[in-house]
Design a protein around this nucleic acid. Sequence first.
DNA 1: GCCAACGTTGGC
DNA 2: GCCAACGTTGGC
Length: 170
Amino acid sequence: MAAKKKATKKKSSRRYWLFKSEPNSYSIDDLAGERMQTTFWDGVRNYQARNFLRDDVAVGDRVFFYYSNSKPMGIAGTMEVVREGYPDHTAFDPDDHHYDPKSDPDEPTWFMVDVKLIQSFPALVTRGDLKSETALAKMMVLQRGSRLSIQPVTAAEWKAVHKLAGVKDL
DNA sequence: GCCAACGTTGGC
DNA sequence: GCCAACGTTGGC
């Protein structure tokens, strides 16, 4: 039978991402301490980032855990996506810092995914380290004014960062 | 602490 | 629909 199967999500090869967090609010050690070393990545309140979480980030994708607004800044380790985009319930909680009264539970505005720790790098790969690597010159997080908190990463960048960290790509 | 780069809001 | 004002992000 030649009937086309309708897919809600295009099947494609594994993708790579970078998620930002301020380690003062949530660090890779916090993730390591979670049950199953897994958590939901909540609080994204930007439409472009939301679209990535809702439409593109898929189970099995790999993610850099990036420390922003910290000293030092950089990539702390890697995570695997274990649940694809679903409504961010913290938007419905008036007591939550990321509460958004405009997000309707019946038609949620904001989405999140679940991530599981793959590895903490032996040492933070700092922003300075990243900048000194010519292969990473075009990496989005290094571009001026790159405020997006969910960013796509190329396979080559994924590999180059592991080389800088001196670890295997698990 | 400063400020450039954005994103959002609201008056018109 | 335009755009000035304002708020936030996040590197330096």
